[in-house]
Nucleic acid binder design. Structure first.
Length: 575
RNA sequence: GGGGACGUGGUGCAGUCUGGUUAGCAUGCCGGUCUGUCACACCGGUGGUCGCGAGUUCGAGCCUCGUCGUCCCCGCCA
């Protein structure tokens, strides 16, 4: 075969006059009757080749069609001045073909391989063809560079890359596990890890004081555009450190990735407490690229004359100002009022147009300047249980930011959300549970101050948020037995139960556990944000659909009776 | 588990609200003309049991019910 001497990005002004061989796919053919042009594509780029009727190879060119794999030998030459293509990196030059070898013929592809369109179903079924799109290739190339940089950075800081098992034990609490039946121990199952959490903490106990892994995690939960059943994390854990040390490592990593891969200085990464985030943005992953913050009127209620909106004790009165409210229909506003009702909230709105207030609750605010409305703006005023009010207005804020296009393009806002609550109430099970996980270090001073008010106890747990996406989370871990026991007790877990659930893990802590803390970054999300991808599917080579299927491989699928028998499994569902 | 949108030649879409002769457009593909194109252009042609099933009707791409699939959202994802 004619083996390539150059890749497509190496064909340019500097190769003029040279005889070269290229290998690649036929991207497009332009047959002008006599002279014939083709674009040849590889992962490095596109190059135009030209078949001249005066060359003996010309006749052979006629049997070529799109997506054939070809080897072409020819001489690189400058294009005529008026026939250059500035859109192509190699647009100044072209290859005059002297020899052609068809390495592989191709059927007409069922999807476009050189255009970014097509329905997702067909594109996923023929994923290997869809991956010929340069944009998808660039995403995966970028992802490769990001993982390489990450390895280099962490390795330079003495982090060791250590693998942990995929076939492991089912963990109670948390997401549903993906299960794998055991043949050797019939009736028993492995679980695929939701994260290497337990193993990385055990590595700390073993003395590997800095661990990292770029590792697959599995969660059998319902999917979204930003959620795949298997996803990849940059997972790390450190010993003899405090929260700030972990944050510094992550700050350095994020800074370096943005600098080296995006040529962007992200500046100093700010911190915001969970409670501040909820009060100001109504979200634990606020998008701070635009303001539209929540404003609190609870303290000013006495100055206002109202009934419907008046908050009772332990309730709050807050509002957001919607810019460009003129585009708002009465119907939309009514739908907000309705959905507020479903959350046991009261919502009113005030519109300012041509200097006049209008709207159901405008009377209340007419003679105040509390809302500070500008012309054309609408205030949505919400009363009810404080946390509900925050959440509700926060959701409206997020939704409207997309609808009204409030988010500045190309801006990047990164921040830490810190001091998450340690516990949250679980309505279904009628008990408190750990919000992060039960091995998270609570603020000991909070435990002492509010022994009977678990809602007020903060944890050394921290999330990294970029542009309103939760990119990762971590925590300082409990390393003392007595504190761990106390936390178990607070979430209503007896010692026996704790032993049953986390047995070997708790035992390990009795043999000298160092203080340690860690973090994990969702790499799929990070790449998606950095590449401006709409969906995680665009940064994963072989992704799954929202129902968890792989349309190309046709997985999951039925298995044979024989396989089932070998595993000792009988199916209850229809075969 | 719940809600919404979508499913029509190989591909992307229109047609569905308001049922009625031969389902339209673009692109691809095939053939033809064309020696500087670059999403080449022009001319001609090919290609659809309208996701599947049932129902209403004289008649269903269109209305009704069910079902399957894709996408988006809520619950869920410690």
């Amino acid at each position: 075969m004619l083996k390539r001497t150059h890749k497509m990005n190496e064909i340019n002004d500097s190769t003029v006059e040279k005889t070269v061989i290229i290998n690649g796919w036929v991207d497009r053919i332009r047959n002008l009757g006599g002279i014939m042009f083709m674009w040849i594509r590889d992962r490095y780029g596109l190059v135009q080749v030209i078949f001249d009727p005066n060359e003996s190879v010309y006749e052979q060119s006629k049997c070529i069609s799109a997506e054939y794999v070809v080897a072409i030998k020819g001489t690189v030459r400058k294009r005529p001045q008026d026939a250059r293509n500035p859109k192509l990196a190699s647009g100044n030059v072209e290859i005059l073909v002297k020899e052609l070898e068809v390495l592989s013929e191709a059927k007409t592809p069922p999807i476009y391989t050189n255009r970014q369109e097509g329905n997702e179903e067909a594109r996923l079924k023929y994923r290997y063809l869809d991956l010929r799109h340069p944009s998808l290739q660039q995403n995966l190339i970028f992802r490769h560079e990001l993982t390489q940089q990450t390895r280099k950075y962490l390795s330079s800081l003495d982090f060791l890359e250590i693998e942990t098992p995929y076939l492991t034990k089912s963990t109670p609490e948390g997401a549903r596990d993906f299960l794998v039946p055991s043949r050797l121990k019939k009736g028993n199952f492995y679980a695929l890890p939701q994260s290497p959490q337990i193993f990385k903490q055990l590595l700390m106990i073993s003395g590997f004081d800095r661990y990292y892994q770029i590792v697959r995690c599995f969660r059998d939960e319902n999917l979204r555009a930003d959620r795949q059943p298997e996803f990849t994390q940059i997972d790390l854990e450190m010993s003899f450190v405090e929260q700030a040390d972990v944050q510094n490592v992550i700050n350095g990593l994020i800074k370096e990735l943005y600098e080296n891969l995006m040529n962007l200085d992200v500046g100093e990464i700010q911190s915001m407490s969970y409670s501040e985030a909820m009060e100001r943005y109504g979200s634990d992953k606020p998008d701070t690229r635009f303001s539209m913050e929540l404003h609190d009127l609870t303290q000013k209620v006495s100055e206002l004359d109202m009934k419907f909106l008046s908050p009772s004790e332990n309730e709050a009165l807050k509002f957001v100002v919607v810019p460009a409210g003129n585009g708002f229909s009465r119907k939309t506003l009514d739908s907000y009022v309705e959905s507020a009702k479903l959350e046991n909230l009261r919502l009113g709105w005030v519109k300012m147009s041509n200097g006049d207030f209008s709207g159901g609750v405008s009377k209340i605010f007419k003679n105040t300047n509390m809302l500070k409305l500008k012309d054309g703006e609408i205030a949505l005023v919400c009363a009810g249980k404080s946390s509900k009010v925050n959440e509700f207005l926060g959701k409206i804020r997020t939704n409207l930011s997309k609808e009204l296009d409030l988010i500045p393009k190309n801006s990047v806002k990164i921040l830490w959300i810190v001091d998450f609550p340690m516990f949250e109430w679980n309505d279904d099970e009628n008990r408190y549970q750990a919000q992060h996980h039960p091995f998270t270090m609570p603020y000991v001073e909070d435990l002492e101050k509010y022994p009977n008010n678990l809602d007020r106890i903060r944890a050394h747990a921290y999330d990294l948020v970029i542009n309103g996406w939760e990119l990762g989370s971590g925590s300082v871990r409990i390393h003392r037995k007595s504190l761990q026991e106390k936390v178990f007790k607070l979430i209503g877990l007896s010692e026996t139960e704790a032993r049953e659930r986390f047995g070997f893990f708790l035992e390990a802590f009795e043999y000298g556990a160092p203080p340690h803390a860690g973090f994990a970054i969702g790499i799929d999300r990070l790449v998606a944000i950095m590449r401006g991808a709409q969906s995680l599917r665009d940064v994963i080579a072989f992704p799954k659909t929202t129902s968890g299927t792989d349309l190309m491989a046709n997985a999951p699928s039925k298995i044979s009776e024989e396989q089932l028998k070998e595993l000792g499994i009988r199916l209850e569902v229809d075969k």
